[in-house]
Structure formats: structure tokens, C-alpha cells
Amino acid sequence: MSVESFLFVLSGGIVLGALYALMASGLAVVWSTLGIFNFSHGAFIALGAYIGWQVSNAEALGLGHVAGLSATLVVMFAAGILFQQIFIRPFERKDNIIAATVITTLAGATILQNAMLLIWGPRAKQIVAIAEGTISIGPVAFSGNDIALIVMVALILGFAGWLLARTRTGRSMRAVAQNRQAAELMGLNVPLLYALAFGLSAAMAGMAGYFVGSIRFINPTFGADPLMKALIVVIFGGIARFTSPIYAALIVGLVESFTIFYLGLYWAPAMLFAMMTVVLTIKPSGLFGHHQRTL
């Protein structure tokens, strides 16, 4: 393998890792806070991509990337809250909440996918690249779009991390994630915080969808593969800290990228699941894991 090839595969892995980090962190926020797995996260990724396409692309409203990203963020945050109120809230505090929300979030995902099909039709769409051209570092030319994606994902994750660690709302969300009953006794508005956590998660999924939509074709089910990768990342890395899925995502992205290069595209999922199985066998709480749910 030449140095150029190595750097090319490495940069591809980092881009994948960054996108998986954004998807998985959103998924982990809901799992940590509400204690449920959101199977509609993939549909949120697709919905975010469609909203971004609708607002930014010349074939639709043509308002550009700033408007597209802003609209995706706001609409997906609101959509996440609405989704939580309809599909999750009625089952809170029920004994079978985990099983019930597997069904309701899968149902929600199906409804969202069919709604997207009705609104945007079956023809695949793509968001135009966020940045054009290439940037050469030594012998390797990096795509401007890839670098823009990495920088923007880092900014979004940095903001989400700051929100959770340094603000009143974030501290309250972390408290609720760790101990709902104590949080209620301290006067925290738990239903509101659950809704905000779901909104934050959906907004992160939407942003991930926007970025993936700039490198892949968008269709109503295109969130399925990212959801599977986000699931691998969350289980593989654990959710001990907000940063755990981020590190795990980079590992998953790099392993996927090098597996595709050396073994071929179809070996990548097998390799990732094998890696996840080995880690779970040795460390059931995940690579950076920890038994307590936290943010």
C-alpha cells in the first residue's frame, strides 16, 4: 500500500467516523436519558436530508446551505419533540416501556418513511456539495466537502458537549439520565427534559442526514444503513460518557474504510459486527463502557 493510498483510505475513514459520531451521539442521548432505543433514528436522518435538500437545493427552494442547515436544525428539533410526545410519552413509566417503544419507534419510522415517499416521491435526490474543490496536503488531495463535513461535525459535537456539560439544561439532562426520581424531587421538570433530549437527538440526526445527503443519494430508507452503523457504534463503544460514541465512531469508520480497501465492500458489515461481538464478549458494557447510563 502506497503512502498516498494509505492517506486516502485514512481520510475516508475519518469522514465516515465523523458522520457515525454525529449519528451515534444523537442515538446515545436518547438511550442515556430516556433508557430506550430509538429505531426511528434512521428515519430522522433521512427526514433531515430531505428537509435540507428542500430548502438548500436549486431544484427546490434554492436558499443555500446556511438556510438549509438552519432549517434542518430547527425543523428536526421540533419534529423530535412532536415524535416523543406521540410515540414515547404515553408509555413512560409503564413496566414494558422498552418493548413498547421498540414497536412504537419502528411504527413511527415506517410512518415517516412513507410520508417522505408521499411528499418527495421515489426519485433519489442529492444535496449539492457543501464545499467545492480539493485541498492538497503533501501528495494527497482531500475533497473540500470532506474537510467541511469533518469541521462542521466537530463544531456540532463540540456545541452539544458544551450544552450538556456547561449549561443548566445540560446539567439537568445529565441528572435526569442518572436518576429520574431524585431529579423529580429536586424540582426538575422531567417530561420537559425528556422532550428536549429527544429534540436534541433528532436535530443531530437531521444534521447527520444533511451531511450524508451531500455524499450519497437520498431516498426514504437511506437512514437504515446509518442507523445500523450508529447502533454498532453505541454498543461497541458504550455510553459511559458523551465522548464514548465519538471515539468508537472513529474506530468503526477507520475499520470500515480499511476493510473496504483490503477485503472489499461486502466484508465491511461482517468485520464491524465481528469486532462488536469480540468487544461485547470481553467487555459487555462496551469498549469505553460503564454500567450506569449517563451523558
Partner: peptide
């Protein structure tokens, strides 16, 4: 009854 703190804070 049990020491119900927010353990990671």
C-alpha cells in the same frame, strides 16, 4: 432511603 445522588456529577 438509599443514597440517591447523581453519580456522575
Amino acid at each position: 432511603q438509599r443514597e440517591s445522588v447523581f453519580g456522575n456529577l
